[in-house]
Amino acid sequence: MMSERKHLDGYATGMMLLLCTIWGLHQVAIKAAAPDIAPIMQIALRSGLSALLVGIVIGCSRERFFRPDGTLLPGIIIGVLFSVEFIFVAEGLRFTTASHMSVFLYTAPIFTALGLQWFLPAERLRPHQWTGIAVSFAGIVLAFTGGSISTGFSLEMLWGDVLGILAGAGWGVTTVIIRCTKLSEAPPAKTLVYQLVAAFVLLLVYAAVSGQAGKVSMTGIAWASVLFQGIVVTFASYLAWFALLRRYLASRLSVFSFLSPLFGVVFGVLLLNEPIDACFAIGALLVLAGITLVSRPHKSPRSSDQIMESSCPMTSEKAADEI
Results as ranks from 00 to 15, higher is better:
V209L: 13
P121Y: 02
P35I: 02
G132L: 10
V54F: 15
A319I: 09
V266K: 08
L259T: 06
V197R: 04
K299P: 00
L116R: 07
C312N: 15
S148H: 05
E322A: 13
S225F: 01
P297H: 08
E309W: 04
R126D: 10
Y238M: 10
M157G: 09
G268F: 09
G264H: 08
P109Q: 02
I133V: 11
E322G: 12
G170Y: 00
G115E: 12
I291S: 06
T13W: 14
P35E: 03
V216A: 08
S311C: 12
G230I: 01
I56D: 09
S260K: 07
Y194H: 10
P121C: 07
F256I: 04
Y194F: 15
G139T: 04
G264S: 03
G14L: 13
L253P: 01
G170D: 00
I149F: 15
S295W: 06
T175R: 01
Q212D: 10
M1G: 11
T151F: 12
W241P: 01
N273Y: 07
T174E: 08
M157A: 13
E91F: 11
T97M: 09
V89S: 04
L18I: 15
F263Q: 05
L49V: 12
G55S: 14
S99R: 07
S47I: 07
K215S: 13
W23E: 08
P68F: 06
R296P: 03
W171R: 06
P39G: 01
L271R: 02
T107L: 14
L183K: 08
Q129R: 14
S99Y: 11
K299E: 15
E309K: 12
F104A: 06
